[in-house]
Design a protein around this nucleic acid. Structure first.
Lengths: 335, 335
DNA sequence: CTGAAAGCGCTTACAG
DNA sequence: CTGAAAGCGCTTACAG
């Protein structure tokens, strides 16, 4: 790499000391306007930029934050990352990504790596496997290490850390209520993520809305073939009038099965799904969905971390921020 | 943050010099086995890890690479990033992400930031706007700055840099040939990315396969409403027998229009699209697609950069690696 | 107003 | 075999 000019070299060219150059560039009042001018001019000419590694060593920080993402192909997380990146820019933080691929082992590796001092703080959504096995030791290790941690989205772990979540329970409570108000009684639910905290919250919201004579009717399975069978049964045998899907897989599988079984959406079956706008809008028919505002989730996560990094948060006290969802109506809920 | 133990502190505890500790931990032959043992034991006890910022300052590098991503919600790029991250781990490189949101201005900002020394090398897929306006000055500035750059996916720019691309042209040539062998004559193409290099390559491949009496029949538009009208015309008026779609939008829009127009896929219309597996498999019907092996693209991009960072690449000579695609048959190409 | 010195935490050539 | 010294590039308290 073309060797960048350093303070030392600028100092030599100007026949002043390194301290003077550094102070001049920082607009220190100690420096005479004349010298400051000279220094800045030459610095500009040579396009001087302080070496961030040196600055960080001096300041005992890294200027970076680590983001642990379970699955970047999940468009929710992709958008969360985008929101984080944008917000991080505002605070001059660089975002280092670590992808756990929903694996506990990988997540542990990453957490171990993160204690090496690569980052000033950590944003994490735990992996599916972590939640299933309820193995949180590595997370507590992180916190014990006194490195600021903010959990996002998958936050139902009793960890002393800031958290940013989505109002999962409320979203499905409202969705079910919407159907009830419209006079529907047989409202089903399909889920492939009942083992995840967010899935459980969504199911809980649905359950709260359903009281006699509206009993919960659920299809829950992780294995696609299993789920398919159960959803099919809901649609064809239980003859539900509406279905709420907790995740991408169950949503798109539901539309698929309805198509195969010649059940018309929305005429015979209303559908609300957890699915991104880009896909939802193009489905046939388009599927009404819960908008989770992932950009907001990402931005708020970085904001909480930054607050802590800047020492504006009370040590030992933690914030929990919940982002409200919006129910977006497309064709699949047309009455 | 709990202050991590340093070499200095270890040295004091052991009553030896800092140099000795450092050498012992690096298995230097200069150090007696006995001392080495003592040092390592205490280091382990205190879970000593060298401060990466200090090490990097010493070695005049950052240990990080910057990845510029046009749009992380595009699942192709999301998977590329995943491949990069995995490969970077292998080489002990941290991946810093920068998302340009397909904006030229943002891309310029990022490139400017990247010359500040945050990263050792850069992986970039240029934004749509950059390609449209053919404004590449900031990219040349990067190269002139002597920071290693590897372009990926969108590589049709005459920049002296390593490149990793997808065999876009060949993919559509083969797809068209497939239809021809099956005896189809009226093969259409739909595209929302004809202004992008990769789009042009796909169209070119399609065009090469089509010779009299099979004339190209194309629907090309960036605006959704415009594209919709054109695709509809292809399907209903030109009565094409097969359609090839260059991107997610045109693919999913095509299935949507076919559904609305009651044109049956695959009976009346065969479809091949550029679309990810996760969505494709769940569409109704499922859509045959071009698999681009994004993980491979990502991994190879990092490999090329790493080769250069390690000084194993010849300065002034650049490699171009093309990843072959695979045509994946699902329901939409059933004969 | 300017500069010498110390120091962030490490590595390594050199002296003993 | 061990340690003092220099240095990576910067910042800043202190002396003059």
């Amino acid at each position: 790499m073309k060797s960048k000019i350093t303070l030392k070299e600028l100092a030599k060219l100007l026949n002043v000391s390194i301290s003077t150059v550094s102070k001049a560039l920082h607009d220190s009042p100690e420096i005479s306007p004349k010298t400051a001018e000279r220094v800045k001019e030459l610095a500009n000419l040579h396009n001087y930029k302080p070496n961030p590694v040196a600055v960080n060593l001096k300041k005992s920080k890294t200027g970076t934050i680590g983001v642990v993402i379970p699955n970047i192909s999940n468009s929710f997380f992709a958008k969360v990352l985008s929101g984080m990146e944008a917000e991080a820019q505002e605070h001059n933080l660089q975002v280092i990504t670590y992808i756990s691929n929903e694996s506990l082992d990988r997540e542990k590796q990453i957490c171990d790596l993160l204690t090496s001092g690569f980052v000033d703080g950590i944003l994490i959504a735990v992996s599916e496997e972590t939640q299933r096995k309820k193995d949180y030791d590595h997370l507590f290790a992180l916190v014990d290490y006194d490195i600021p941690v903010v959990m996002y989205d998958r936050i139902n772990i009793d960890l002393p850390a800031d958290k940013v979540g989505v109002d999962d329970e409320q979203s499905f409570f409202e969705a079910a209520k919407y159907f009830q108000v419209k006079g529907l009684n047989k409202i089903g639910l399909a889920t492939a993520i009942h083992h995840l905290g967010v899935g459980q919250l969504r199911i809980k919201g649905y359950g709260k809305a359903l009281k006699e004579p509206n009993l919960p009717i659920m299809a829950a399975a992780t294995k696609p073939t299993e789920l398919r069978k159960k959803i099919k049964s809901l649609i064809t045998e239980d003859k539900i009038e509406a279905i709420m899907c907790t995740d991408f897989e169950s949503t798109i599988m539901t539309t698929r099965i309805a198509y195969e079984e010649k059940i018309k959406i929305p005429e015979d079956l209303k559908v609300i799904g957890y699915i991104g706008k880009e896909v939802s809008e193009f489905l046939t028919p388009s599927v009404s969905y819960i908008e989770q505002h992932p950009n907001e989730v990402g931005a708020n996560t970085v904001k909480l971390l930054n607050k802590r990094l800047e020492g504006k948060a009370v040590s030992g006290e933690f914030e929990e921020k919940i982002i409200s969802t919006s129910l977006m109506h497309l064709e699949s809920t047309k009455f």
